[in-house]
Write a protein that binds this DNA or RNA. Structure first.
Lengths: 221, 221
DNA sequence: CGACGGATTGATATAGATCAAACCTGGTGG
DNA sequence: CCACCAGGTTTGATCTATATCAATCCGTCG
């Protein structure tokens, strides 16, 4: 639809929801441009939560490792999204670059200080947080109650939607990341996708380029 | 209408974290006391998000039903906790009374209006939300990556902690609610608890009264 | 007492995990 | 220009934790 917008990345900020305007303003004024290479760590669990980030380009994963090495990716953040803002002094999750990323960083303390003065900003912050919570709750439904096939389909749909083109997904992450986000193994992700392809619910145009069938795909599967 | 039905709350409120002080103040001043019987609906998905609630006593479950009737309980709220505050105009989840509940209700619109003036209050709101998000993220790890036994143990621990006594849990909810919160079936919850009892990790003192072993219970299991 | 709504236990089925091998594909160096 | 390598991915064979289906049990309440 609006593929034009996607091209306009010459300048600083990607689009953000209007509610986040005061926040965007701060990033524009104070943001420090930082880049992270594919798979680089942005911050680690228990690290000082000193900065808050805005994704300019690329994709970030927020994840947690179990004692036994299992990993759960609670969210991916893409262009225009803010992450790393937590109420405590320490991060409780890791953030890592899924692909090469450009981020803007601002100091958390500055943000908190300004929010104490500026009710508009404070409101933007809770909107941000509430949206994240909403996603998290939806994701719990997926993790707790959906089959592998349902998980893959909703994941593809949601990425397609976030990316703007509802018929074709360009996945920024590999299969292992998908598995760790959906609570599956990489083998199950792979098998399920081939099943979907055989059932013509999707077309695998490239290992990371998936064309989605019409919405009835869910019904068919 | 409120002037007639409203019984202002004169009694002390349950304890709340200090960060929530401005919010607590509003509930104290404007909260309308409401009661809900066991299993009563408090609000439904897509209902107008007109009120925000503080639990005075009892337990509330926040849940969502799949098309096929499966249910996921994303959270339980107990005394001192606030729920029902969402950024949109509509609820995206159901709230139901797990047991007989006393709640205080305030108007969402009033809250939003005051938050626009009072940065302190706005801050309290995002703290509230951030804490909820944090819980949700921890819960995703549980749903995505833990075994039935690990889930039951963390659940019991977390309820024990919230209730104040780390060695003995009084469960306000039945087995089906636990199952729907942990992404398991009621049979698996039941079987796992008997296994834990056999392994002496817990003692089932009554169907809803569980004594917890020392923390090494996790290791043993 | 009898009945009803949880809860537990039992027998079996199965989706997804695990272990293991083969298969791309893009990059490197000969 | 091609052979080779390495990472990620797919496929195959099997195992197992948990779901499902079906009784049975237990405690509470009329």
């Amino acid at each position: 639809m609006e593929s034009l917008n996607a091209r306009r990345n010459l300048n600083p900020l990607p689009e953000m929801p209007e509610a986040a305007a005061p926040l965007a303003e701060i990033f524009r004024r104070e943001g420090v441009r930082t880049t992270f290479a594919r798979n680089a760590g942005i911050y680690a669990e228990e690290a000082d939560a000193a900065s808050v980030f805005l994704v300019v380009s690329g994709t970030v994963r927020i994840c947690k490792y179990c004692c036994d090495g299992k990993r759960q990716i609670s969210a991916f953040h893409m262009a225009g999204e803010v992450f790393g803002f937590e109420p405590g002094e320490e991060h409780r999750f890791d953030a890592e670059a899924v692909e090469n990323c450009v981020l803007l960083a601002i100091r958390r303390s500055a943000l908190v200080a300004q929010a104490a003065e500026d009710a508009n900003l404070a409101q933007a912050l809770w909107h941000l947080c509430a949206r994240e919570l909403q996603r998290a709750q939806e994701h719990m439904l997926l993790l707790g109650r959906q089959s592998a096939m349902e998980r893959i389909l909703s994941f593809l749909d949601s990425v397609a939607e976030r990316r703007g083109d509802p018929t074709c997904v360009q996945l920024p992450m590999g299969r292992q990341d998908i598995a760790d986000h959906l609570g599956l193994t990489i083998e199950t992700v792979s098998r399920t996708m081939t099943q979907l392809a055989e059932a013509q619910a999707i077309v695998v145009e490239g290992i990371r380029r998936i064309r989605l069938g019409q919405t009835p795909s869910r019904l068919a599967a």
